[in-house]
Simulated scan of single mutants.
Amino acid sequence: MITLVSVFSVVLIASQAKAADNDTFEAVRAADTAIARIGYRLATTNAPLCDSLQPGLGLVLQTPEQYGLGFRADAVRHFHMDGPVGVEAVLPDSPAAAAGIEADDVLTVAGPVQFKVPAPDVPATTQGLIHLSAQIAALPANAPVEIHGRRNGQDYVRTVTPVPACRTRFEMLISDGYTVQSDGEMVQASSRFFQEYPEDQIAALLAHEFAHNILHHRERMEEMGLSFGMLAGFGRNVRYFRETELQADILSVSLLANAGYDPAAIVRFWQTFGPSHASSIFLSRSHPYWKDRVATIEKAIANLGTARPSRPAVLASREKPLDGDWKALLVRAR
């Protein structure tokens, strides 16, 4: 996985801003790098479990048009982004780092993909980054990629030999709310979690949403014509949503263990978060009770074994239609 991060925070905040200082830009870089690092670790170590792969380079990329017109020039100047794609960060010990690519480099070509310079007056958007992310993700997962870049006005060519990674991009949303979600292609988490929880518990959150993508839950539910949002807690939707939540809980245990995280971090997260934030009437209709989810997770941890990568039986469910039998997966809390 390339770990391309779409900075929605910049689009939402910068569109109203007139200027920004260096501290603001570095805070954005730090936030994007934090979620990219965890996502890259989860995606590369769990590649054997995924049926859709992409090249794992260890790059966090950005584009000028992500920034509002009010301070786009400031962002370009700060990140030395005098080109179509900027390197916001390079993850330590990654293929990109080994190839000598550095933060604040500018990229123009990756393999057969040529990056285009956007019009200078285009409104703030992340669509360009999402598009180029998809282009690079479509490259062979383990074939060398020739990268054309520029640093301090000097052009260079580097060959990066990626590691296979599960095909998912990880995004940071700057928000005071508690938001974590997936859509089959991305995993997105709000910055508030990063302010209040340790890395292993954030990894647990991301692993749960990542599990939804690996199990193709969104696509399978859309094929069944299920309703999302508030309607998820009504009618026939309920049993299928609860089934997918429990499947993701169970698979997330293996995803964490494979990545070298303590799976018990999931339990610690729910013990802190659950009593205050997981008891709304709508959430309780579409999701099993959080204490029962913890009991289910604890059983999955007990069944882990020592083999790595761990491949739980629930992984095979992605080849079958959802049956809605969530009670067969649930362990009741005592």
Rank of each mutant, 00 (worst) to 15 (best):
T3W: 06
S6C: 13
V7N: 15
F8G: 15
S15F: 01
A19Y: 07
N22K: 13
E26Y: 09
A27M: 12
V28L: 15
R29G: 04
A30E: 15
R41I: 01
L49E: 00
S52H: 12
S52E: 14
L53D: 00
P55L: 00
P55Y: 00
V60M: 01
V60R: 00
P64C: 03
G68P: 10
H78I: 04
M81V: 11
P84V: 07
P84G: 10
V90M: 07
S94D: 01
A98R: 14
A103T: 15
D105H: 03
L107F: 05
G111F: 09
P112M: 09
P112T: 09
V113N: 07
Q114A: 13
A119W: 02
A119R: 13
V122T: 13
P123E: 08
T126K: 08
L129Y: 01
A134M: 03
Q135G: 13
A138V: 12
N142A: 15
P144G: 12
P144T: 04
P144N: 12
P144K: 10
E146G: 06
R150N: 12
R151M: 13
Y156A: 03
Y156D: 03
T159P: 08
T161W: 02
R169D: 14
S182H: 11
S190W: 07
R192P: 05
F194E: 01
P198T: 02
I202R: 09
A203E: 01
H208P: 06
E209W: 06
F210R: 04
F210D: 05
A211T: 07
H212C: 10
H217A: 09
M221R: 11
L226S: 07
S227R: 14
G229L: 08
M230C: 02
V238A: 03
Y240M: 05
R242E: 02
L251E: 03
S252C: 05
S254N: 09
L255M: 13
G260H: 06
P263V: 12
A264Y: 07
A264P: 00
I266Y: 05
I266R: 15
L283S: 08
S284W: 02
R285F: 06
R285G: 04
S286W: 15
H287I: 10
Y289W: 07
Y289D: 09
R293M: 02
V294D: 00
I297N: 03
T306L: 15
P309S: 01
R311W: 06
A316F: 06
S317C: 00
D323Q: 05
D325F: 02
R334A: 14
